[in-house]
Design a binder for these strands. Structure first.
Length: 472
RNA sequence: GUCCCCAUCGUCUAGAGGCCUAGGACACCUCCCUUUCACGGAGGCGACCGGGGUUCGACUCCCCGUGGGGACGCCA
């Protein structure tokens, strides 16, 4: 039997981090078993579904590389099928019309809550042997309800949580079609999972309570019941539930913020799942290892610092050309054009080990392509008057050498020695002058990349300022 | 309120009765490397929610508490 999994988001917003992990696990499970991964858009909520959200979800999955084998299917395009089944169920008695108004239902719920009961539909329109139904009221379009079993229990062996058993007395006759005839979520899911031959339903555990209803429906339809795996939720960095206000950010926000998709993927894979002590692995490896047995049943808190660590790792591994293309764009967004001088890939190679995100990388190398932002505190600390003659002399030396890291280093070393100084005493002022700050890679390497002309120009400009002369 | 789920270092987790003096990773601290900051290397700090059982033996199994979360829509 071919394993078939699905990811079924409702297009009411972007693809957030929890949805992305659900998609990742479903995708990986299908890959692991040479199965098929189906994408289905659950867009029956006309009020809240938007085409923009559909696109956002597709974009997010594409960025992560979670490719689907089938779909996307759209539920709104399957209306005829749903209506056909509903007609069938009405005919065979597994569903019935209910003429309760919303007000009536609200009142019922209110009363039950007050009596300390679980709010449930009381079955007043449910046909029974020898029962007299109320008189059908005028002008009230009915909803269609599923005739849920009254007794017994529904149970399934959840692949993550183990056996879950729920009494049918906890369930009620839920609505499968609204008054306007459109089918509802629990119904569509069941028909779709059935029609699409889904063998493993991997989804968030906020659906645990829907599962018994769906199983009952499946049985009423004579459909095979798939296996279920309910994933626990992901909490925000602060331990709070992810929500619009609590950093339930779009996966595309991670792109914005300078994260590599492979880092996000690796991080998400380890959030709620593990393979011994393995921390760093690619998706090829993940798909070979992934199983449902090693998924944690408890909720996991998102940890940006660990994501950062992984991101730093993948930045160091990434292809330089790819990084350069990305960084060029990020610099452009900052209004900086990275020309050919100095070579962007070389600059990135010099800096990639010092950053955790691509934005940090772009920011930290910006000074190569435009005038550095001067850190005045660093200036005050390192550009002391006594260093002026040393730098003046050094500039003279630098003017006439071959511009290689080795030669530059030798000249600086010489200036240090002949003045009886320590290396940092010369290196730090230079660093501030050239980069605008007190932190950079080896100053000779920076100078080599910056180029002779630009290095001397920045030194001159700095020295002029230092000597209280008008800047050139 | 009712039902359901969950519970190991600050965080992510390993652990399927003896391998646990509870392992790894992130973060944190110390030292080393060093031209500043990083990277890297070596150490360190740090946890089985509580109480009862079961068992020769429990982090592991059962029960009860406690705490956290979820669900109770003509939303998905």
């Amino acid at each position: 039997m071919t394993i078939r999994t699905r990811f079924a988001p409702s297009p009411t917003g972007y693809l957030h981090i929890g949805g992305a992990r659900t998609a990742l696990f479903s995708w990986a499970y299908a890959r692991r078993h040479q199965g098929r991964f189906v994408l289905r858009i659950e867009d029956t909520d006309l009020e809240r579904s938007t085409p923009e959200a559909v696109q956002a979800i597709l974009d997010g999955m594409q960025w992560l590389g979670l490719t689907w084998d089938e779909g996307p299917y759209y539920q709104m395009q399957r209306m005829d099928r749903y209506k056909e089944i509903i007609r069938q169920m009405l005919a065979d008695g597994s569903a019935y019309y209910c003429y309760c108004t919303r007000e009536e239902l609200d009142a019922m719920r209110e009363q039950q809550m007050q009596a300390g009961l679980k709010p449930r539909y009381d079955g007043r329109w449910r046909p029974e042997e020898g029962k007299v139904l109320p008189v059908v009221p005028e002008g009230i379009p009915p909803v269609v309800r599923f005739r849920n079993p009254l007794n017994g229990t529904v149970a399934w062996d959840d692949l993550v949580k183990g056996r879950i058993e729920i009494s049918n007395t906890e369930l009620d006759d839920f609505i499968i079609a609204r008054a306007d005839g459109t089918p509802t979520y629990n119904f569509c899911v069941v028909v779709d999972d059935w029609d699409m031959g889904i063998t493993h339903v991997i989804r968030g555990d906020d659906h645990v309570n829907n599962t018994p209803r769906q199983i009952n429906l499946l049985r009423a339809l004579g459909a095979e019941v798939p296996q279920y795996a309910h994933l626990s939720m992901i909490l925000g960095d602060d331990g709070q539930k992810l929500s619009k206000r609590h950093g339930a950010v779009s996966v595309m926000q991670y792109h914005e913020d300078g994260y590599l998709p492979e880092a996000v993927l690796n991080y998400l894979a380890r959030l709620g799942w593990s393979h011994g002590d393995d921390e760093i692995f690619d998706m090829r490896q993940f798909c070979e290892w992934f199983d449902l047995d090693h998924i944690t049943p408890s909720a996991a808190q998102f940890n940006t610092e660990k994501l950062n660590w992984l991101n730093a790792h993948y930045i160091r591994q990434a292809d330089l050309g790819r990084l350069a293309a990305d960084i060029r764009e990020r610099l452009q967004k900052r209004g900086i054009a990275a020309g050919d001088h100095p070579d962007l890939e070389s600059v990135i190679a010099l800096y990639r080990e010092r950053v955790q995100t691509l934005n940090e990388l772009a920011d930290s190398i910006a000074y190569f392509y435009h005038e550095p932002m001067m850190d005045e505190v660093a200036w005050e600390k390192h550009l002391t008057p006594d260093i002026i003659p040393v730098l003046r002399a050094l500039a003279g030396e630098l003017m006439v050498i071959d511009w290689t890291t080795e030669r530059i280093h030798a000249v600086i070393e010489q200036a240090v020695k002949s003045n009886g100084l320590k290396f940092p005493k010369v290196a730090m002022p230079l660093r501030v002058l050239l980069t605008g700050g007190a932190q950079s890679p080896s100053i000779d390497a920076v100078m080599a990349l910056l180029g002779q002309k630009e290095t001397l120009a920045r030194m001159e400009k700095g020295l002029s300022r230092l000597e209280k002369l008008p800047a050139v």
